[in-house]
Simulated scan of single mutants.
Amino acid sequence: MSLRALSIGLAIAFNPAGVSAQDHMGHSSPYAGLETRAIKSLSESDLKELRRGGGWGLALPAELNGVPGPAHLLDLSDEIPLSADQVAAIQRIFDAMRSEAIAAGARLIEAEDAIGTAFQSGDLDESRLRALIDEAEAARADLRFIHLSRHLSTPPLLSSEQIARYNMLRGYRPDPCANVPKGHDAEMWRHQNNCG
């Protein structure tokens, strides 16, 4: 009898279900360890982002479709470049967005905490669960609107060249100055694309 066969036989003999400890370990949840989170549905990085009024990826439909957001416009103001008046206007948009996002983020954190607390207490029925989820989703929708709507506020302040430059700097569009298409006169191409 091989050592493996003996091990399996002993595992079956001492475990009526026929499942070894190794099998249990192979089926552990990908969520194992998350039960220690303060708010089960939010990671520490999620909490940090929400508390600082960060975007939390909620504005991706705008960002990835070429509609600039105020935070990244301010980060790239020198490279775009933005005028002092543009920076001041975008800063006002950003400050209002951040203030509103911090408040909505706090509501979302509180709502997610309430869901976890209700499950922990065991004092929960479907009606109460629906109300708690609706509160959390309303806060999330408000937060998403806050971030996405500010992407609508920035394009009127920018030229089409500045928007194109923003998208190129963010890595969404190739740099026309660095990529002269085959068959084009390089000097003429760079002149037509305002390359320095």
Results as ranks from 00 to 15, higher is better:
125 D>L: 12
144 R>D: 13
195 C>L: 13
101 A>R: 01
39 I>C: 02
6 L>K: 13
143 L>W: 05
18 G>A: 05
159 S>V: 10
46 D>E: 13
8 I>W: 09
64 L>G: 02
182 K>T: 11
165 R>G: 00
34 L>E: 07
196 G>V: 09
121 S>V: 14
58 L>V: 07
1 M>F: 06
11 A>T: 15
169 L>V: 01
172 Y>W: 04
8 I>Q: 04
143 L>M: 09
145 F>E: 06
134 D>R: 14
178 A>I: 09
131 A>I: 07
75 D>V: 11
104 A>G: 05
2 S>C: 12
18 G>N: 08
93 I>Y: 03
106 A>K: 11
130 R>Q: 13
125 D>K: 04
77 S>Y: 06
121 S>E: 15
196 G>Y: 01
148 L>Q: 12
18 G>L: 09
191 H>F: 07
105 G>A: 12
77 S>G: 03
178 A>V: 08
131 A>M: 04
163 I>L: 01
37 R>N: 11
114 A>I: 08
69 G>S: 03
112 E>Q: 13
31 Y>F: 14
92 R>L: 15
173 R>Q: 02
43 S>F: 10
110 E>N: 03
154 T>P: 00
128 R>K: 04
110 E>Q: 11
76 L>G: 01
41 S>Q: 03
182 K>M: 05
98 R>L: 08
8 I>L: 10
153 S>P: 00
166 Y>E: 01
4 R>W: 04
146 I>F: 02
184 H>G: 02
149 S>Y: 05
84 A>V: 15
15 N>E: 08
6 L>T: 13
161 E>W: 00
57 G>S: 11
155 P>D: 08
192 Q>M: 15
26 G>M: 15
33 G>F: 06
46 D>L: 15
45 S>L: 14
1 M>W: 09
106 A>Q: 13
182 K>L: 09
71 A>W: 01
7 S>I: 14
104 A>D: 08
33 G>N: 11
144 R>N: 06
43 S>C: 04
97 M>Q: 09
14 F>C: 05
91 Q>M: 04
104 A>P: 02
85 D>H: 07
144 R>C: 13
99 S>Q: 03
109 I>M: 11
168 M>L: 10
73 L>R: 02
164 A>P: 05
4 R>V: 15
85 D>N: 09
174 P>H: 03
54 G>F: 12
148 L>T: 12
97 M>H: 00
81 P>D: 01
159 S>A: 10
51 R>N: 08
39 I>H: 01
3 L>I: 13
36 T>I: 06
158 L>Y: 11
